[in-house]
Amino acid sequence: MAEKKLIALEINGRRLEASVPPNQTLLESLRELGYFEVKSGCEKGDCGACAVLVDGEAIDSCLTLTWTVEGRRLTTVAGLGSGEHLHPLQTAFIEHGAIQCGYCTPGLIIAAQSMLDTTPNPNDEDIRLALSGNLCRCTGYTKVFAAVRDAAAVMREGKRSG
């Protein structure tokens, strides 16, 4: 068994240390630490359910070793918004009915956020490319696209006024 190491992580703005073996993926670590909003769907980068942001960029946490993200800023969907304080993407997904079984939703929202970070005014193709690594079996993506377009507009407006 490879040696565990105490790793300093910053998750959703919270700093913590966790004892992690070198062969543990970020997906496994996050779920062990109780971040159940990070979902496991394939463990090989085919489905995107486990996506999280690392310094604002979406990655598949199943294909990322925890040791390699030490000291970097990690964000799960719960870190974008929770309870009464929702992120515009979360609000748009809820209002558009873009959520069915919901298992792919955290990954979709993370992937969308990652894209909007660099492409605040995405066209249809931008959205499709950004979400092509997130499989959804329920929605047919139609309402997901509408939600992302709407959220992008809200976020642009927010930036202008904020």
């Binding site: 995107g48 979406a58 990655i59 992937a111 894209m115 979400l131 690594g133």
Partner: peptide, 12 residues
């Protein structure tokens, strides 16, 4: 590169 995997894979 555009059609290389999905976004998360392209990011890594």
């Amino acid at each position: 590169a555009r059609v290389f995997g999905g976004q998360m894979v392209r990011n890594s």
